[in-house]
Structures are given as structure tokens and as C-alpha cells.
Computed example of a mutant assay.
Amino acid sequence: MKAAVLEQFGSPLTVETVPDPVLGTGEVVVDVVAAGVLPYAAEVFRGERQYLLTLPVTPGSGAVGRVRTVGPDATRLRVGDWVLCDPTIRSRDDALAPDITLQGLSARGQGGLRLQEHFGQGSFAEQLLVPTENAFPLGAIESADAGQWCALPLLLVPYGGLLAAGLRAGQTVLISGATGNFGSAAVEVALAMGAGRVIAPGRNEKMLAELERRFGARVRTVPLSGDEDTDRERMGGTASDPIDVVLDLLPPSAGTTPVRAAAMAVRESGTVVLMGGVGMLGGSDLGLPYPWIMRNNITIRGQWMYPREANTQLIRLAQRGLLDLRHFDITTFDLDDADAALAHAATDGGRFSLTVIRPTTPG
């Protein structure tokens, strides 16, 4: 099969003929029809984000495609079924704290690197090998719409954070980093989950206006000044109701000031979920005050990615029309143009714009 290969960090992707994946028990091989390209993928493949990724590798995190072959443990998947391939692969030998690798992107620790030895090859290829439990049926979809369904791996990340927060219908949620790629997706997901109001702070006033235009009165935007106390007061005043949940999705390039301003805008007995990349490249610690956390009964938790069942739940939200994938504009590239797709995603991807590689056309 054909696949794009990263030989070393900083080198261009080369499209090569590589061996077809070999099916084993507990696995599924999928013909990849569409694979999304993350806006920061080029940073990862240049080595700038210092992700754990064993080279050489076929990159690509997540895909939509059709089942090619299934193992003996699959009792409902059939050859030809449309599926979402979840890139979050978990080891099966520790139910409480499984090791995790993000297929074709990164790993968490040495256990994740061991998973990469078998499941490390990603979706910028004609075929993809995934664990059986990572292939989620989509039902009957049109081939032309496969790129649209590539929005799901992006939307799953903030969905995992909002599930961790226990967001309930009617509550007010503040999305820290709302003008970014994951943050703007989080606004849509929160509304689909029934949030009564979404507070969207950010510095990009054009994107703030776009969020209001797309989603209407349930979204309240807050232009950030950079002064922590001022911004916290603005967030609380804009909300009008107490802020029940804060979800932080700011990237590694952001400082701690906007994170702290947003977190401390949460109400007494509220929940703060930290899911972004602040501090990953060095810098100051967040420094939330102990007395404030304790006396106000604040719940603070970290969340990396999402639980497995989130895939099925989010697919249902999209199938029922509560989550509208048509918000995303799609730009498509052939597999032979994988490097051009990376460049396009870096400059034009994100914020309701998806860059997609289409390695195969289903029969």
C-alpha cells in the first residue's frame, strides 16, 4: 500500500510503498477514505513539541474509512462498514491506568512507546490497523461526506473535558482558549450538550465575533485585556449567571495568566478542567491559591483525551443533528500531496476549517 512516511524530525514526508498491515486477533484493518490533519501537526513532525514518537513512522491521527478485514473477536462489524478510527489506543492489561498512545502522533511515557511498536503507524496511508474497540460504526454515510466526519476526532477532545466536568443541560460553561482550534470546537460541543450559556474569552476579536454569528445568543464573548483581575471581572459580569464549569484548552504558547483568570471565575463548588498545553514547553506554574480552592469547594482535575465511550456518544449527537458537522469547511488533498496538506493545515486549518487527506476512494 501507499503511505506517507516521516523518516526524521524536520524532514519532508515521503510517499512510499510499504507493507500492508497484517491482521491479528483483536484487530481491524480499515481502508482509509479520509484522515484529518491537525493544525499543529507540522510542529510535531519538526520536533518542536517534543512529543514521544518513534521514527520512521506513518503519521496521521484518526480517520474515517471502511472496514477491510476483521478479526475473530468482532461479532458486529462487517466488511464494508463505515467506521471512525479513534487514535487513542489503550493497553488492555491494566483496566485502571492503561498506557496510551495517540496513533501516528505521540505517546504517554514508556508504556505508550511500547504500544507504538505495534499500533504506531497512522492514517496517512491507504490502510490502517486499529484495535477492534477503536473502530466505531458510523452507519450509512456518503463517501463525499467522509471528510466532514473527520471533525469528530477534533470534537472528541473538548467533549472529553466537558464529560469530565460533568456538564449538565442548562449550566453555564466558560471555555478558556475559545478562539483556538480545540476551544472553538468546545463551544460547539458545549451547546450540543445543552449548555445554557457559553462564555468565550479570547484576544482574537474577529473569531469572537464569528462565534457569536455562528451560535447566537447562547454564546457570550469576552475580549481579553491581559490584566488578570480585569479579565476575571469581565468574565463573571458577562456570564450574568454563576459559571458552573471552566474548561481550559489554551495551547503551549499561552501563559498562565489567562488560565488563572478563567479558572478563578468559576462559582463556589464549581469545576475547573485543565486540558490544554500551558507549561508543556516550560514557563511558570499555574499557581492557583490553596485557600481559594479549599474555602470555595473548588474541584480541579486534569483530563487527557476522553473515555472510549465518548466516541459512541458523540457520533450519536452528530447523527441526531444536535452536533452539526456542516460548521466545518473542508479542504481535501491527495495522499501524494501530504506535505502540502501539512502546510495548509498550519496556515489555514483550525477554527471550523478542516484539512483532510483522502488516500483511497471506496468502491
Rank of each mutant, 00 (worst) to 15 (best):
A239W: 04
L354E: 08
D86P: 08
P12D: 13
P252R: 11
T238P: 01
G177W: 00
Q127A: 10
R49C: 00
V356R: 01
L128C: 03
P153H: 06
T230N: 12
P19L: 11
D244I: 05
G287P: 08
S240I: 13
L288R: 11
T355R: 01
F182G: 00
N181P: 00
R232D: 06
A263G: 07
F333W: 13
L247V: 11
P56N: 09
L314R: 01
Q171K: 08
V356M: 06
L322F: 09
Q319V: 03
A169D: 15
L115H: 05
V28N: 01
L113H: 10
E16G: 01
G60L: 07
V356Q: 03
V64G: 01
E27I: 02
F352I: 07
S225G: 10
T332L: 00
E48C: 02
P242C: 12
A262Q: 04
L281I: 08
V83Q: 03
T69M: 10
R351W: 02
V278N: 02
A41R: 02
P137E: 12
A346I: 06
G287K: 13
G112A: 06
I330W: 04
G24Q: 15
G196H: 09
P98L: 08
T69H: 09
M1C: 04
L38S: 13
E117K: 14
D337L: 05
E43R: 15
D337H: 14
A254F: 01
G161V: 03
R326H: 15
T312P: 00
F352T: 06
E117T: 13
Y290N: 13
A190I: 09
P39K: 03
S123T: 13
G71A: 05
V187F: 06
Q171F: 07
V198E: 12
P131L: 04
G122W: 06
G122P: 02
V83P: 04
A41W: 03
E210G: 01
A125V: 04
V67C: 08
R326C: 07
A345R: 00
G226N: 09
D86G: 05
D86C: 10
P289Y: 03
L250C: 11
A341K: 01
D94G: 02
G183V: 05
N296C: 05
G170T: 14
I315T: 08
E133F: 03
P137Y: 12
A186T: 10
D241W: 07
S61L: 09
V33M: 09
R66N: 10
K206Y: 11
L354D: 03
R260D: 09
A265E: 09
E126G: 04
L96P: 01
V32N: 06
A254T: 03
A343P: 00
G166N: 11
L342R: 01
R168V: 02
Q127V: 04
V44N: 05
G236N: 14
G196Q: 10
G160W: 02
P12S: 12
P98V: 09
G226L: 11
S61V: 10
L288I: 15
V259L: 14
L96A: 15
R260V: 14
V173M: 12
G277Q: 10
F215G: 05
R46D: 15
L156N: 05
T230D: 15
P252H: 12
R267I: 09
P59E: 13
